[in-house]
């Protein structure tokens, strides 16, 4: 700080300050650090033109409200025709990874649009941004541990960092994807294929780590954190895959192989004791411990 000049016998200079609270609700004129403070003839004003100022002196001014609350915002408008798109999977199947995905940790909802994914703040229900996509994805899957988005279409996966909404990399696969499953314990992403196989992506490096043969026409499934198993929906049964070793450890038969009803979607309850799987017009309730359906709810054809 510049030194303070003192003259005539070292008398301490009077230090004064004039202040304006620009954005607060109460106007004040403040003088600080002065033992000899006097009334400040300080005037704040807004000026239409600094080079042609109106008189603003002589009388202390009432507060000049500066409405910073009306500062411009940054509304984002995404591309036209935001829409849901969950129909990339064979036979109109989708999986637990849908065209809408949620990260409960950040409380954000991600929805597919035209070559974008919109970001909804679930606490306010307001769209807060858009993530440009390499292509319009057919399905989304979120790693809640790493806050990454896996957007997929055809046989390609695009990985995005949801902390920055930036594209990270592309994972090319040889077979079209029919469904996806997220293993939060081992940080793996499973991608099922029509040919009866399932690719295992190591979420740490986002590369294919293994390929597992499951059942007929698998289409996604569900990961059960209770037993750390992956339940893969085949046409008529469920392959049970160990979440750590990627080995098939069992099968749950749901209906007859001749049935026209096929497994298309599933979820698991909080305790991991029951899996609910949509199969044709039915919702099959499967006892995980017994590895068999225990009941079903049927929707009448409408």
């Amino acid at each position: 700080m510049k030194s303070v000049k003192e003259v005539s016998g070292g008398r301490r200079p009077v230090r004064l300050a004039a202040a304006l609270i620009l954005a607060a609700t109460v106007f004040s004129t403040t003088m600080i650090g002065s033992a000899n403070a006097v009334t400040a003839g300080v005037t704040w004003s807004t000026q239409g033109d600094f080079e042609n100022n109106e008189s603003t002196t002589a009388t202390p001014t009432a507060r000049q409200e500066i409405d910073t609350a009306s500062a411009p915002g940054s509304v984002q408008l995404g591309p036209k025709q935001l829409r849901n798109n969950g129909a990339i999977f064979r036979n109109n199947r989708s999986s637990s990874s849908t065209a809408q995905a949620i990260n409960p940790t950040t409380n954000r909802v991600y929805t597919v649009g035209d070559q974008t994914v919109s970001v909804l703040d679930a606490s306010t229900n307001e769209t807060i941004g858009f993530i440009p996509m390499v292509q319009t994805p057919g399905a989304l899957l979120i790693s809640t541990r790493t806050n990454k988005l896996y957007a997929m279409n055809g046989s390609t996966i695009w990985v995005y960092d949801l902390n920055t909404n930036e594209y990270l990399k592309t994972i090319p696969l040889t077979d079209p994807i029919t469904g996806s499953i997220y293993n939060s314990d081992a940080e793996k992403v499973y991608l099922t294929h029509e040919n009866g196989t399932m690719s295992v992506i190591d979420g740490a490096v986002d590369e294919v780590a293994a390929k597992v043969t499951v059942g007929v026409s698998p289409a996604g499934g569900v990961y059960n954190t209770a037993d750390k198993k992956v339940y893969v929906l085949n046409d008529h049964d469920i392959s049970i895959v160990d979440g750590g070793s990627n080995e098939i450890v069992g099968t749950i038969t749901v209906n007859d192989a001749a049935s026209t009803s096929k497994l298309v979607n599933a979820t698991v309850n909080a305790t991991g004791s029951k899996i609910y799987a949509v199969c044709g017009a039915d919702l099959q309730v499967i006892d995980v411990a017994a590895r068999k359906p225990i009941t079903k709810l049927t929707w009448a054809p409408g």
């Binding site: 004039a18 000026q47 239409g48 000049q64 609350a69 009306s70």
Partner: peptide
């Protein structure tokens, strides 16, 4: 903000 110019005159 909404006020284009702000000045303090002392």
């Amino acid at each position: 903000g909404d006020a284009a110019e702000v000045a303090l005159r002392v």
